[in-house]
Amino acid sequence: MISIRNLKKSYGSNHVLHGIDLDVRAGEFVVMLGLSGAGKSTLLRCMNGLVKPDSGSLTVGGIDICRKHSRRELAQQAAMVFQHHNLVPRLSVRKNVLTGRLGQLGTLASIAQFFRASDLQLADACLQRVGLLHKADARTDALSGGQMQRVGIARALAQSPKVILADEPVASLDPKTATSVLQYLREATRELGIAVVCNLHQVEYAREFGDRVVGLSQGRMVFDGGPDELDDAALQAIYHQPTEAAVSSMHAAEQGGRWLKPLAATAGAM
């Protein structure tokens, strides 16, 4: 579903991504970890077509991002779940989910927001998946933050994508609500065979929900392994500074599991 080879991106003299290689399979939930500025958001923005890589190859859901393509083409393959929901507060929950169908409609139908009966059925099915069908007719601004994020997931699912890209989707939520949101996202995408790349800061969530964890540090991929393989060496490679967040993440990861050397350590031994 996602194939990345030797991807590089710079902003002037600031080298943000240094030769990233990554594959994500259908139905796989990949969590990206790293400090702020490690390159996670830039990599995700390359995947969703908002940033053009300098070199390398990147294919998302069959779309070659490095070649000319339309936003509509990419929207038919890849959906986004945003940190701050990006919903229309005054619209109903169902209508917000239906906006995920706009890329599938013709130009006139899209402008007029003329949705087919099948679109309405799909929107309700997506709301059912995230436990919010009973809120379908409610105004979105009447929901809690966690419910809004679940609407965002339902909207992404309504695009019928091959890939979902999630950028810090639970950063503003309390731990209980965040866990619930990530559970809905993982279960829905596994059942539908959708590849997911999810940027997170919390190692405990990466270990609980990720099928794989990718660690970035200073624009380089320094870890790629199972969530139970995040040992103190791997976390040191990812969080190379002894910040409070890194220390907290290390404590969370030291609760058990088997250990694997990070990519940096492996490369050094070759």
Rank of each mutant, 00 (worst) to 15 (best):
R5G: 05
R5T: 04
L7K: 02
K9V: 03
D21N: 13
D21G: 15
L22F: 14
L22I: 08
L22E: 15
V24G: 01
V24R: 04
F29M: 08
G37M: 13
G39K: 04
L44W: 00
R45N: 05
M47V: 00
G49E: 00
V51W: 07
D64V: 11
E73A: 15
L74Q: 13
A75G: 11
L87T: 00
V97W: 11
L102S: 02
L102V: 02
Q104M: 06
T107M: 12
I111H: 05
Q113S: 12
F115N: 06
L132I: 02
K135V: 09
D141N: 10
G145P: 14
Q149D: 13
Q149H: 14
V151A: 15
V151R: 14
R155E: 10
R155C: 08
S160N: 08
K162H: 08
L165F: 01
E168R: 07
V170L: 11
P175N: 03
P175Y: 02
K176Y: 00
A178R: 14
T179M: 03
T179P: 06
T189R: 05
L192E: 10
G193M: 06
E204T: 03
R207K: 06
V213A: 09
V213N: 08
L216R: 06
G226V: 02
A234M: 03
I238K: 05
P242K: 05
T243A: 07
R258S: 13
R258G: 11
L260Y: 09
T266N: 15
